[in-house]
Design a binder for these strands. Structure first.
Lengths: 202, 202
DNA sequence: TAATTTTATCACTGCGCGGTGACTTTTTTG
DNA sequence: CAAAAAAGTCACCGCGCAGTGATAAAATTA
């Protein structure tokens, strides 16, 4: 009876470990992210983390790659009609990013990690994200151009950074500068992003 | 010769410990912030941390209080002529915050801490900062009002959050979305903040 | 000077961590 | 079936951590 001795399968186990690593990171944050916790969550021995994933660094690298893919998809989603102005383009980007980020705890944890530690690993995450964002802009922009006299990359950086920090603050403490980050609060933030973008680009 | 047996002085020692705690936090970040490291930096026994500061929580509380005072002073600094418009008011706030934050590693570490952990302690830090900011606005505003139809608190949240995240990103990886955060880059960011504020409020 | 209280140090416990070598069990190959 | 290779487990090491009870040294009081 019940002699299921779980058949052995290397790639399956490697996958399980990667999933466990993501789960632990999403739930505990990078502070509690280590071989012991991951092996515990994966239900296997920690040795396998070193064998199948080059240790924690390899796992982090894999997660970073998945994150880059996620970002691509999250931004690419709201297709349909192309933007008719640079202001609309950037508004779409910022709002798509805001929504996607709010729904992705793992991504939030990685962002927090990026500002809390300054390892090379984490720098690469940030650089990859920046590249993905800029690539999206370059691809979607078409022949739309920001108004002359406006430093679009700098303004975009402020907007996206604002969105990013608000999502992190919302997850961590539920409010920012007196604005409660509940559903109504997020609606206000979205409206403010729209106003800011059209105020500078429109 | 040289028999300086350091005279004992409780309040002096308590101060030394607090300073050491700040130094360790500023240099190592909150990950390396613990009784052992602090005692080592203060050159005394860790037991004294429990005796004179109620342990790590008490120290954190004290540091948080100092931070709140620092923020007050950092924002209050650029007096002189009062702002002539709401746009100018918020531009001043954002730029003063940006400059002060960039120069204060300890404050940066605390901000990173706030988004990385979700303890009650850290929530209080965030709440206190938010209150200080709003109090500054209420005090300096005079009879200036934002244009009708603009949700000023929400827009200010986006702006300040953007400034905050950019400073953290600059310290951690030196760039954000392709904008290098060196002296020239910060000039661009400041200009963008000015444009955003006057675009939405001006 | 002697007794007492304050200040500071020491030595230790228990824990979880990252990491590794030796082992057992299953699967594949000959 | 036996041998070899792959997959997975176990027991252990050294380390740094938070926390604590007993103890030593200085300062204060009697």
């Amino acid at each position: 009876m019940d002699k299921r001795e779980k058949q052995r399968d290397r790639s399956r186990t490697a996958d399980t470990i990667l999933e466990a690593a993501k789960t632990v990171l999403a739930e505990q944050g990078f502070a509690g992210w280590g071989v012991n916790a991951i092996a515990r969550a994966a239900g296997c021995d920690k040795q396998l983390i070193y064998r199948y994933h080059e240790g924690l660094d390899g796992l982090a690298e894999a997660i970073g790659a998945e994150m880059a893919a996620w970002l691509e998809e999250a931004l690419a989603a709201p297709e349909g009609t192309p933007a008719t102005s640079y202001a609309e383009l950037m508004t779409r980007l910022a709002l798509a990013y805001l929504g996607a980020l709010r729904a992705n705890r793992l991504a939030q944890r990685i962002l927090a990690w990026e500002v809390a530690e300054e390892s090379l690993l984490v720098k690469r995450f940030a650089a990859a994200r920046g590249r993905a964002m800029m690539a999206w802009i370059a691809r979607e922009r078409g022949d739309l151009v920001p108004p002359p006299g406006v430093d679009a990359p700098a303004a975009n950086a402020v907007l996206i950074a604002g969105v990013q920090n608000l999502v992190l603050a919302g997850a961590a403490s539920g409010a920012f500068m007196g604005v409660a980050l509940d559903d109504a609060g997020w609606e206000r933030i979205c409206a403010a992003v729209r106003s800011l973008a059209s105020g500078i680009y429109g």
